[in-house]
Amino acid sequence: MFLERVSWRASKRRPRYMSDLLASLAFRTAMIAFVFNIAIALYGVLSRPSLVKKFLCLVAFTDSINIFAVFIGFRYTPGAYPSPPILEAIPTSPAEVETLINTSVDPLPQAMILTAIVIGIACSIFLLTLILMYYRHYGTTNIHEAEEGEEPHAEAL
């Protein structure tokens, strides 16, 4: 799977440098943190009564998914730092293109994250506006408190 795409070299081959070992360790830690982050954020959205806390957890949830996409685009080659996907010298030589292909990260997930972040901002602002209106109606953002004092047969068109 995608996990192996990044870390297969570290597992199959004996790491040559201390930095490889550290990178592999950091990568695994980050992946575990990603999964835990998603779980905790979902728990927060589902169980916290305060709408503001729900909102914060929701933002954490979407952002952990965005960070996951960075891992998808990341390429780790032992002994070489990942480089940005940019050709520096123009006109270029075949050797430079080969280096670029071997070491550069995949730029497409970053473009996708950018789109997702922009959409997420629109969603967040809308949600905050709704929470503000909720606060104006009920005087609290705690859903349990708000629903206690509510009349049962309020009607709207």
Binding site: L58, H137, E150, A156
Partner: peptide, 22 residues
């Protein structure tokens, strides 16, 4: 949430928005 003067509409929209964003 178009009828924003109705608290029930705001609540319905919040429900929809939070679950929809997940």
């Amino acid at each position: 949430a178009f009828y924003r003067d109705s608290p029930r509409a705001i609540r319905a929209a919040l429900r929809y928005a939070i679950s929809g964003m997940i």
